[in-house]
């Protein structure tokens, strides 16, 4: 096992732990007040114009079946095509779509490389067709990713709409992504053994057996990817998976608290907490519960 092995394991560990920790932290946050925003795509027959079940008289007596197909279609349009940016920020769309789609292609490439690595580990060989798909994904992914990074960097630097809100981190993120794509592109362009080296790298991670067989550009590329893994969980780029929460837990979360609902028990528990807000009209002292503060005080004039 080499130092590079240890670095690779450490970065994968940080990535996994960082992502899981963020998911657990967000998922364990308390139930919040309803704050959905229409259109909600699972509103069967109404999503097209943004309607909801609340349009029906005595809506609580009617059965309600969510439309998961429309919801899924909406998600795919948003994730794959960045429909929101297309509709609301067209000048930015080309650069951000190119960047994101390039990353999706490379994630696809990585998944197939893992498959290839598994085949090699189990004594098989990489089918030619699979190799061709991996190459195509890699070429397209690096090209799109590099173009997207450069275009996005240009927008961040020269578009006054974005410039005032830049931090050093925003520029660094794009430089890092650009460097990953550039090194990948140079590597694949100059090394006919690109796939076998990468599948060998992955097989070597799973079953360490001496140093990796990578060219210098390969080390740079893989090293930058590993650095990205360590860095990513601590940045806003985690929106890649946090979007699940912003959409499903907030924007499209419309579950009513009807009698018998599982929500009520949670609400009662939350309302038994003791707030410490200091403004006199709240009347909190760190002991009185939220529900007591709401139901037993507040009628006095401030």
């Amino acid at each position: 096992m080499t130092v590079f092995h240890i670095l690779a394991y450490a970065s994968l560990l940080v990535l996994g732990a960082g992502v899981i920790a963020r998911i657990l932290r967000l998922a364990s946050m308390p139930l919040h007040l309803r704050w959905e925003l229409y259109p909600v795509p699972h509103e069967r027959g109404r999503a097209g114009y943004g309607g909801s079940r609340l349009e029906e008289v005595n809506w609580w007596t009617k059965s309600h079946r969510a439309d998961h197909v429309t919801e899924l279609r909406t998600m795919l349009m948003e994730i794959l095509l960045l429909k929101g940016v297309w509709e609301h920020n067209r000048p930015l769309w080309l650069s951000t779509f190119t960047l994101h789609f390039g990353l999706y292609l490379l994630i696809g490439e990585a998944a197939l490389l893992v498959l290839g690595g598994l085949l090699i580990l189990t004594g098989g060989a990489l089918p030619q067709a699979l190799g061709a798909v991996i190459l195509a994904l890699a070429w397209a992914g690096y090209l799109m990713g590099l173009a997207g990074s450069v275009l996005m960097l240009g927008r961040r630097l020269f578009d006054p709409k974005l410039r005032a809100f830049n931090s050093s981190g925003h520029l660094f993120n794009l430089l890092l992504l650009g460097a990953i794509h550039a090194t990948g592109l140079l590597w694949i362009a100059g090394d006919p053994l690109y796939i076998s080296r990468l599948t060998g790298f992955l097989a070597g991670l799973a079953a360490p057996a001496g140093p990796f067989n990578l060219p210098m550009l390969g080390y740079w590329h893989v090293g930058l990817v590993l650095f990205f893994f360590v860095y990513f969980p601590f940045t806003h780029m985690t929106h890649a998976f946090v979007k699940y929460f912003t959409y499903h837990n907030v924007r499209w979360e419309d579950e009513p608290n009807l009698p018998g609902s599982r929500l009520q028990e949670k609400i009662v528990r939350l309302e038994s907490q003791a707030p410490t807000w200091a403004a006199p009209h709240i009347g909190a002292d760190g002991k009185k519960t939220w529900v007591d503060i709401v139901t037993k005080t507040g009628e006095e004039k401030s």
Binding site: L26, L162, V250, T276
Partner: peptide, 28 residues
């Protein structure tokens, strides 16, 4: 904190930590 702001803690945290500053929202 959840004892003071359980009502909106999750949506607020999500909005605080994940904005890409893309300014897509501004023209709306």
């Amino acid at each position: 904190t959840k004892e003071n702001n359980w009502t909106f803690l999750q949506p607020l945290t999500l909005s605080m930590e994940h904005c890409a500053r893309c300014q897509t929202c501004v023209d709306d």
